[in-house]
């Protein structure tokens, strides 16, 4: 029913693409991250909560359709339903039903609670296409509460030492999740890199409660940010912008920080293991919850998970959507 095409998945029965990376006539978008949502599609379908962020990301060029979670809609000869994915605000998994059966397609998802978005909701399907960003058993996340505690301890150490605490995290999703986790615990306002400000505003407009923020560009000349927490996208690391924070301590919030070498290679002082993706145990648990007879791993190192599932008696295979992109043009 679905096949890799245009860097996403094409559904011939419904004549639409899920998360295409090239311009197509009709796209169903799971969430607004750049590796899932691109500008140039004729028509967009996305979860209602995700629309403002998506419009911000891909511009106003397309024809946007906001869809409610759990409300089926018709596309061609298929019935499509979006369910909460728990990844970022407005993220969705896609259920596609037709005479060929029921497929579940994940963009990215996580199972841990997140104050900025609805909790992942499982549904029954015949085929479950699961993301697999962290598809190895070494990836096992500590409880969010523990990691938030570590971040606060580190911030306090920086306050005591009078140093800026620069915390790198993805500008969409992770930054807002952190701000929400810190909402009633931040000892002072948090500074944001300019790239994070409009997205954070999008979240606030939708009523997400977050810690108070200021944008770094609003700080006075010569202000030292001593003991202040600054959130910045990873791309800012090593850039001239960082000169604003002399003697800073740096941290990175990501699932990749589970591995020491990843942190040391990038030269971060601290790594905080918090991810918006499912860890290995949750990838497996979700396969069980979706009750699928067949599993296809996509997005990431899927060979290992597929191999493990096969050994557990589940029909599983791995698809490399990106490789398809480099080989073919959109149909």
């Amino acid at each position: 029913m679905l096949r890799p095409d245009a860097g996403g998945l094409y559904c011939a029965a419904g004549d639409f693409w899920i998360d295409p990376l090239k311009p197509v006539p009709r796209a169903v978008i799971t969430h607004a991250h750049a590796d899932h949502a691109r500008s140039g599609a004729g028509e967009y379908f996305t979860a209602r909560e995700g629309l403002p962020v998506l419009a911000h990301r891909v511009g106003d060029g397309g024809d946007f359709n906001a869809v409610d979670y759990g409300q089926p809609f018709e596309l061609g000869e298929t019935r499509v339903t979006l369910f909460p994915a728990g990844h970022i605000l407005g993220s969705a998994t896609v259920r596609v039903e037709s005479e060929h059966g029921t497929w579940g397609v994940s963009g990215d998802f996580k199972r841990a609670p997140d104050p900025t978005c609805a909790l992942f909701q499982p549904f029954d399907c015949d085929v479950w296409m699961t993301e697999c960003t962290f598809g190895l058993p070494v990836y096992r996340w500590p409880a969010t509460e523990q990691v938030v505690g570590e971040v606060l301890d580190w911030w306090q150490d920086c306050i005591d030492a009078g140093r800026p605490a620069v915390l790198f995290c993805y500008a969409l999703g992770k930054a807002q999740r952190l701000l929400a986790e810190l909402a009633d615990r931040a000892p002072r306002p948090i500074w944001l890199h300019g790239a994070m400000q409009p997205l954070t505003e999008c979240y606030r407009e939708q009523g997400i409660l977050m810690a108070d923020t200021q944008t770094v560009s609003e700080a006075g000349k010569g202000y030292k940010f001593s003991g202040d927490l600054v959130l910045a996208p990873p791309s800012a690391a090593g850039s001239p912008w960082m000169r604003r924070f002399p003697r800073h301590s740096s941290g990175f919030v990501s699932g990749w920080m589970r591995i020491r070498g990843n942190r040391r290679r990038r030269g971060y002082d601290r790594g905080f293991v918090m991810s918006d993706h499912a860890d290995w145990p949750d990838l497996i648990r979700t396969v069980t919850d979706m009750q699928a007879e067949r599993v296809i791993t996509i997005h990431g190192s899927g060979e290992a998970l597929a191999g493990y599932l096969r050994e557990q008696g589940i029909a599983a295979e791995s698809w490399n959507l990106r490789a398809t992109l480099s080989r073919s043009e959109p149909a």
């Binding site: 058993p137 070494v138 591995i259 070498g261 190192s301 060979e303």
Partner: peptide, 13 residues
């Protein structure tokens, strides 16, 4: 399984 431990080692280094 042993192979999955090897795959993990390959990634962790």
């Amino acid at each position: 399984p042993a192979w999955l431990i090897e795959d993990s080692y390959e990634q962790v280094g």
